[in-house]
Design a protein around this nucleic acid. Sequence first.
DNA 1: TGACTTAAAAATGAATTCATTATTCAATGT
DNA 2: ACATTGAATAATGAATTCATTTTTAAGTCA
Lengths: 222, 222
Amino acid sequence: MVKLHSVEALERKSLHEELVMRLRDILLENEFQAGDKVPEKALCEQLGVSRTPMREALKVLAADGLITLIPNRGAIFRSITIEEINNLFPVIGALEALAGELACAQISDQEIKTLKILHGKMHTAYQSKNLMTYFKLNQQIHETIISAAKNQVLSEQYTTLSNRLRRARYQANMSDQRWSDAISEHDNMISAIEQRDGNALAKILKSHLQQKHQAIVALLER
Amino acid sequence: MVKLHSVEALERKSLHEELVMRLRDILLENEFQAGDKVPEKALCEQLGVSRTPMREALKVLAADGLITLIPNRGAIFRSITIEEINNLFPVIGALEALAGELACAQISDQEIKTLKILHGKMHTAYQSKNLMTYFKLNQQIHETIISAAKNQVLSEQYTTLSNRLRRARYQANMSDQRWSDAISEHDNMISAIEQRDGNALAKILKSHLQQKHQAIVALLER
DNA sequence: TGACTTAAAAATGAATTCATTATTCAATGT
DNA sequence: ACATTGAATAATGAATTCATTTTTAAGTCA
């Protein structure tokens, strides 16, 4: 088989690993939602690969909880339910709280500086009401805190669960009130880190996430 | 291909899913350790399946963190390092603490009764120094607490991470002192649950795990 | 003897093929 | 007209085949 456009579609790496990433984006960013069927064959053609690596990638994504494989029926995009959201938030909260404690115990001045820069940019995005930029910066800040904890297992688990939430984020917008609250929660976060107060940071992160949880649930139930 | 003994080796289900479970057991229970190569072909013959489903299963296990796939080099059993153990324990600890809080908030009298029965059996196993039985009951007790939290996401994450630790457990034995300490920690656990004191339970679980962590690290470093 | 080269063998990655199971849709009967 | 049956079609599960890469090992030359 001549790979034609597939060469430009997927640059070499390990194909299956590349596929997992590409599919994750395709599934999350747009294209699919609800309990849609994930068309194996169409995706193969679109990405220029055969079914074997595609099916391997789908199995990995299923293990990740992003899709569900039904025997002899193929893959369906796993519709995120309110129940799943309610289950995800406490777990992510516990992980973030742990990250906060660990991070404060060993964060470097340089990392704090990076955080403050990101935080400043986020304020700017907030003032100019640039929601997309705000989202991206917000995510970067949380990722920076997690990675400051220097715990690979923690980072992996957090990433996996956050990805599962990403589906919900695209549905739910933010109210003005919630947005301004979130900003001030972030202000508190940064001061706790500067003082390296792990206990305080853990509490802030936990309640920050609880607020977000409530906001999302409220929006979804409307 | 005639399936012969494979029919009795793997009873019907979804083959790939069945394989994942079988492989997990084979990898963990004995057979493999350290950075051993996982012989794809040999396993195919042993279990009577072709390479396609086997490779799908290996990819899932790699996503789970049990093995590492090196491009064009195959799978190697992921040797658990002290660093990984040090990373796993705090995360599992955070999950258990969360489970303790959630469980206390909604555990039924029936579930408490079950726990007390398991706890009694564990005491018996301790008195007769039956280590294997003790291990099994200990695991059942922790699983019961987790499942009493009624959070699917939490259960899944806990199971995944616990499996990764199982490798270390087979290496490390318990000292008499540690064993008797563990028993009394369990006694405290049960009373906290009976009083439905989530905060206390969370703390006990966390410190229980920290003790276990230290014991394992001490043994491994000798 | 020991290091380097290179040919053969084995293992892995991916596509294809074959078999089985769902799904679709038209035809039949009520 | 509606439901039910059954054949045709499509999709999925798994084995096989083909291509590429790595490993092994023998042979050559310093």
